[in-house]
Simulated scan of single mutants.
Amino acid sequence: MSKEYLPQFYIMLEQQVGIALDDTKQYLLESRLLPLATQNGHPDVYALIKYLTQNPIGPIHWLAFEALTTNETSFFRDKHVFEALKNKILPDLIASRQKEKTLRIWSSACSAGQEAYSLAMMLREDFGHLNDWTIYIQATDISELILEKAKSGIYSSMEAHRGLDAHYLQKYFTHIEKGAYQIKPAIRQMVNFSHHNLVGNWPFYPKFDLIMLRNVLIYFKQDVKDKVLQKMYQQLNGSDSVLILGAAESIYLNDLYKLVPLDKISFYKPNSPVKA
């Protein structure tokens, strides 16, 4: 069981998807890559890693990278964020966009879609007066597998009950086979899911009024964080647009953003008008 190829694999992983691992996370490699190693005829995880480092990037590499991404999330995750969205952030954005009647939101690193669908349900539930508006919710993730689940809108009973009260579950979900629930078509149709690697080449996106980039930067080194934040800055739609990070994430020594504190959360706005 040779571990000599681990440093090369760490470099490959960071270059391809931005995730920074080291030898303190070997348990993560062993637990998440073992099924892939077994399925592909390798005697152990380290034999798989040797193969990955000695061969050009291909489908098995991306299966390994996806296995090492964290897809832990829930509906309305971090209630203080969604309370701030409902009571302050979205009302302010809506007030300033009355003329265009267009609201664009990006749920980045959306995992299985709970964040994007939570936003869609909130807009339907609490902002019914936007019926004649164009509401665009873009949701992206690096994992093709998790995006397929997100597009289906199907969640186990445990997933559906995490963060959802009975009202939302009854109003916006259909109870299907084996105790699972599926989000109703009207909500699914509000969200556009697509593949996106934050550290790769970015496709063309419109400018967004609200970007959710939560619990992603913690896996990146500072130089990678800075590059992602610079690109995010270019995607913001004017000086009053909003970037929300995870509770444990901050932007340090960055002249592109200004911190806006609220009662229980903080968010960011562009420090100066975003250039077209």
Rank of each mutant, 00 (worst) to 15 (best):
I142M: 07
L210N: 13
E148S: 05
Y219W: 10
L90M: 11
S272T: 14
N201H: 13
G41Y: 11
V81T: 13
Q54E: 15
V242F: 11
K184D: 06
L259H: 09
L259Q: 15
V274T: 13
R162H: 06
V228H: 04
V199E: 14
Y10M: 07
S143R: 13
P203M: 04
A150N: 03
H129I: 01
E148C: 01
T102Y: 06
L210Q: 10
G128Q: 10
R97S: 07
L63H: 08
T24G: 02
A116V: 11
D209M: 04
N87H: 15
Y46V: 00
L243M: 08
F65L: 10
I187V: 13
N271H: 09
W62P: 01
R188K: 15
L6I: 10
R214D: 11
A64S: 15
L103H: 09
K88A: 08
E4N: 12
I89P: 10
L13E: 07
Q15E: 13
K149G: 09
I265M: 07
V216P: 02
Q16T: 14
S157R: 13
P261T: 14
L103I: 15
A109E: 12
H42V: 02
I146A: 02
D209N: 13
L68D: 12
E14T: 05
K275H: 07
Y136K: 12
K227P: 00
L217K: 05
D92L: 08
I105M: 11
K3Y: 09
S194K: 08
S239W: 01
D92F: 10
Q54N: 15
R124N: 04
P270M: 04
L63M: 12
N87M: 13
I60Q: 08
L259G: 00
N40M: 06
G113P: 09
A150W: 09
T174E: 04
E83I: 09
Y219I: 12
